[in-house]
Simulated scan of single mutants.
Amino acid sequence: MANETRLEYDSLPAVTPSYLRAATTLSGGLAGDETIPPIVAELPDLEVRAEELAKYRKVCGFQHGPHLPVTYPHVLAFPMHMAVLTHKRFPLKLLGLIHLRNDITQYRAIETAEKLHIEVSVGGHREVEKGVEFDLVTRVRDRAGELIWQEDSVMLSRQKTNVPKSAKKKRDDGLGFEPDEQTTWDVPENIGRRYASAAGDYNPIHLSPWSAKLFGFPRAIATGMWTKARAAAELEPKLEKSAYTLSLGFKKPVFLPSQARFAYSVHEQGADFALTNANGDIVHLLGDIRYL
């Protein structure tokens, strides 16, 4: 692709330089006809480290088994996400980006001993009422080159756009499905630090009350990808197939510490699920699983 920037690795890049670039990038935005240029990072033959996988399983609630948790390739690719989103050609500020939606398609279960080819890419944008949206895409292939896993993350950078404000929507308190089961999650104050230790995601809004306050939050909030992984860990043993798309939208943050209610319905097409506060009147996330 013309004007494409390629980052080629033979091992995962260190995340510390990316965090330093993120912390020292004071401004960012798109002007005029500018868009996000195509940036692609690629790493072949990545091996999973058993001790890191075990740590992730423990903090997210996954059972031990011969296959990777459905959300684990996101963690494997995270250093490459950081490298792409802090590259000098990426025009937006990383700190302050909002993760709106995350869709993962697992075409087959991935064995823990497999060597994986990972590719991360961005490019282009969409103007919306609240700012600029873009897609961060991660693809995982096996040694034969077959696509076995893909993640599409929709990210938002708040800034002024020419999109007119729409009429305020009437609040919908429903979940869109009738739950068959529900469980209570105790979300501890230290879950952001524990997840960071297992996944490498040290975003300050998840680590402590004082660091979260620097970004306008009264308390630290749970990492969105931890809530997704925790949901997947609870649902995976109930699923009949290993090839599916796991989609969700992030709604309201989960402040730490707190109790949350996980409600779900498993059916022949997959499952529907939601995470709310303990009273059920604040929705943190809504998602579904659909078999391929």
Rank of each mutant, 00 (worst) to 15 (best):
D173T: 05
E133N: 14
A109H: 08
P164K: 00
H206T: 04
Q150A: 12
G174S: 14
V132Q: 04
G131D: 00
I205E: 08
G131I: 02
V122D: 08
T183G: 13
Q159N: 10
E127M: 02
L147Y: 12
T138I: 11
H125G: 00
A144Y: 06
Q106D: 02
E178M: 06
V154I: 05
E146A: 15
I110V: 14
R126A: 08
D173K: 07
K115H: 12
D142L: 04
E178G: 04
A167M: 07
I205C: 13
K115W: 00
V120K: 13
E114C: 07
E127I: 00
V140G: 09
E111T: 03
R143E: 10
V137D: 06
G200V: 10
H117N: 15
I110Q: 05
P164Q: 03
Q106S: 08
H125Q: 14
S197R: 07
P204K: 02
E189T: 03
L156S: 00
V140S: 02
T184D: 11
G192T: 12
V163F: 10
W185D: 05
V163Y: 10
I191Y: 08
M155P: 01
V154Q: 11
A196H: 01
D173F: 01
Q182W: 01
R158P: 01
H206Q: 02
G145S: 10
V137E: 09
D172L: 08
L147C: 08
F177I: 11
R171W: 08
R193I: 07
W149K: 06
Y202H: 09
R139K: 14
T184Q: 08
S157D: 06
E181Q: 05
D186N: 15
D180A: 15
I205Y: 13
K170H: 02
D142S: 05
Q150T: 15
T184I: 15
P179V: 10
T183V: 15
K169E: 15
G145E: 10
L156R: 00
A198D: 13
T138V: 14
H125K: 06
E189S: 14
G123A: 12
V140M: 10
K170Q: 12
I110E: 04
I205F: 12
G176C: 05
V128D: 14
I191M: 13
I118R: 04
T161W: 14
A167Q: 06
G131S: 03
E189A: 15
W149N: 08
R108C: 02
E119W: 10
V187H: 06
E146N: 12
W149P: 09
V137I: 15
D135I: 13
E114A: 14
R194A: 08
D135T: 09
S153N: 15
P188I: 11
W149H: 10
Y202Q: 05
N203T: 05
N203W: 01
R171Y: 10
I110G: 01
A144C: 05
T183F: 09
G192C: 09
E119K: 15
K168S: 06
T184H: 08
N203K: 00
R158Y: 00
R139M: 06
K168H: 03
S166A: 09
I110S: 02
G192L: 02
